[in-house]
Design a protein around this nucleic acid. Structure first.
Lengths: 126, 126
DNA sequence: ATACTGATTAGAGTAAACTCTAAGTCAAGG
DNA sequence: CCTTGACTTAGAGTTTACTCTAATCAGTAT
C-alpha cells in the first residue's frame, strides 16, 4: 500500500495530478487511519492503463466514462467493450495518419538535404 | 485567389481559426482592394501542410517557429531541417506507442468478448 | 520546543488552441 | 433605400488538463 508521493514517483506523474484524477473519479484509492491516500497494486495497474490511454490521446472525459462503467459493475461489460473498440479504431486511423505524415516529412527532409548539399557545392565552386 | 470563407470550407476549418493562424503569424494571406484576405495556391498548400502537422500533434508554437524560419529566408534551411527531423523522431516514437497500446487493447477486447460469450453460455445453461 | 517532511483540503491560476462577440464596413440584389 | 451576407477588428470567453497556493495537521529529527 503506497502513499501518493510514492505512486507519483513510481509512475512519473505529480501528486497534484493524482489528486486531480481522484476529483474526476478516475481513481479512488483507500485511506489509512490518518485519512491519507493508500494505493494498492490494482490501483497502480489501473493508473498505468490510464497513462497508456492518455499517451494515445484518449481524453480524460472518455477515461472517466470507462472508469465509471467499471464501477457500475458487470452489466456494463458490453458498453466498456464498445468504448475500447471505438478507441482502437481511432488509434488505427491515427497510426495511418502518422505514417503518412512521416513519409511526407521524409520526402521534405531529403529535399532539404539535397538543397543544402547543392548550395555547398555551389559555394565551393564560387 | 480565394476568400477566407472559401478556404475555410475547402480545408474544413473555421474562418475564426484562419484569422487566429494569421494573428499567430502562421500565415499571411494577400489583401484585395477592399482589404479582404485573399489566399493563393501556395497559401493553400502551406495551410494543408500545417493541418497535417497539427494532426500529428505538433504544437502551434513549433509550427509558428517553422513558419517564421521560412519567412527569414534561405539561410534558415538547416534550422528548418532539424526542426522537421526532430518532429519526425517524435512521431516515430508516437507510432511505436500507438502500436503497443493497440496490441494491449486488442488483448483486452478479446478478453472482454470471451467473458461475454462465457456469460451467455452460462445464462443459457441456467 | 521547533523545524522539517509529507500529507490533507478547497479553490485559484495557467497554457494551449481555439471560439465567439460586438461593433462596424462594404458591395450586390430586390 | 434597405436588407442580406461576407468581410473587418480587438478583445473576451471557453475547454482541457493540469498546476499551484494557502492553510492546516501528523510524525520524525535535532
Amino acid at each position: 500500500m503506497r502513499t501518493i508521493g510514492e505512486v507519483a514517483q513510481l509512475l512519473g506523474i505529480s501528486t497534484h495530478t493524482l489528486r486531480y484524477y481522484e476529483k474526476e473519479k478516475i481513481i479512488t484509492p483507500d485511506r489509512d487511519e490518518n485519512g491519507d491516500r493508500r494505493y494498492n497494486d490494482s490501483h497502480i495497474r489501473w493508473l498505468q492503463f490510464v497513462i497508456k490511454l492518455k499517451e494515445t490521446q484518449m481524453p480524460i472525459s472518455k477515461i472517466k466514462q470507462y472508469a465509471s462503467l467499471f464501477l457500475e459493475g458487470e452489466h456494463t461489460t458490453l458498453a466498456r467493450l464498445s468504448l475500447l473498440v471505438e478507441h482502437k479504431r481511432y488509434m488505427e486511423q491515427q497510426i495511418k495518419t502518422l505514417i503518412d505524415v512521416d513519409d511526407m516529412l521524409e520526402r521534405k527532409i531529403v529535399a532539404y538535404k539535397d538543397f543544402i548539399s547543392k548550395r555547398a557545392a555551389k559555394t565551393l565552386a564560387d
